[in-house]
């Protein structure tokens, strides 16, 4: 018999600090549902690492689990040290687009290259929300922000393709307008051996929505739903036809040797005969 979901098993009871309509709350709730459906009755066996930014507050201190709230952009290096010394723990990183692919981008690529066995959930709200709406590496060019008042002059980054090409086991994009798909994707990521990366395109009505011309969170969710396209469909279209759309789905899902496996075999080799 399946146990009913009870948030008290997973949350400390500290209220989330997010604005009304923020996608961060959705991601937190869907994540916990996914964990529940995978059969975890609590978060023992998990450790959460996060950096600085709104979505770094998803696990810390709200999840009833071990959590390390690190400096800006450095959650993945800290998660690396944790995972290597405690390979049996499920290590999950939460962060925003500024944290993960702005200041911390180098670490993301290298973690994917190493196929480090952690799950990184990047909540992409396409803006620096906590600091008041500055341009992010993910901001669409036409959107004006507080630091690009005439519009942007840079291309936004496709983080999922980058992680896929760097060598991760699993990389996917989904939005907060696709709750069921989001839950399924999180479950898949948590079950993946090796590096798993999810970009969750999410609404920030406060810092992004009003700048991009949305009245409220609901409008943003509708827009995200209507402008998403599956990767399978996108592959049939030209680059121009895909422009302005959110390509969602699994970009890669494959079995590759993981960093933990490789390090363990190095230790075995070294303790047997040394490097000569």
């Amino acid at each position: 018999m399946e146990m009913p979901f009870s948030s008290g098993n997973y949350l400390r009871g500290v209220p989330f600090p997010f604005c009304a309509g923020c996608g961060g709350t959705t991601v937190a709730n869907v994540f916990l549902r996914a964990v529940h459906e995978l059969g975890h009755r609590n978060l023992q066996g998990f450790v959460f690492c996060s950096g600085i930014g709104c979505s770094s507050w998803i696990p810390s201190p709200h999840f009833k689990a071990d959590s390390i709230h690190t400096t800006h952009g450095r959650s993945i290096p800290v998660a690396t040290g944790v995972k290597l010394m405690r390979p049996n723990l499920n290590v999950v990183v939460f962060g925003g687009d500024g944290d993960i692919v702005g200041i911390g981008l180098g670490h993301l690529i290298h973690a994917a290259r190493r196929n480090l066995d952690v799950t990184v959930i990047m909540v992409n709200n396409m803006i620096y929300g906590m600091t008041g709406g500055q341009v992010a590496p993910t901001t669409p060019q036409e959107v004006k922000t507080s630091t690009t008042p005439y519009g942007g002059f840079e291309r936004p980054l496709d983080a999922v393709s980058l992680v896929a090409s760097a060598g991760a086991s699993y990389a996917a994009r989904v939005t907060t307008a696709h709750i069921q798909q989001l839950k399924g994707t999180i479950k898949k990521a948590l079950k993946t051996k090796g590096f798993s990366f999810i970009e969750v395109v999410s609404q920030c009505p406060t810092a992004y929505g009003r700048r991009a011309g949305f009245k409220n969170a609901g409008e943003m969710l509708h827009w995200m739903r209507d402008h998403s396209i599956s990767i399978r469909e996108a592959q049939k279209l030209s680059e121009n036809e895909v422009k302005g759309k959110i390509v969602i789905g699994d970009f890669v899902d494959r079995k590759l040797p993981t960093l933990t496996e490789r390090i363990q075999s190095t230790i075995k080799k070294a303790s047997k005969d040394g490097p000569d």
């Binding site: 390390i68 800290v78 998660a79 944790v82 670490h107």
Partner: peptide
């Protein structure tokens, strides 16, 4: 960053 993580992992 990694040594901070490892230290919290008990090392």
């Amino acid at each position: 960053g990694a040594i901070i993580g490892a230290s919290w992992a008990g090392a």
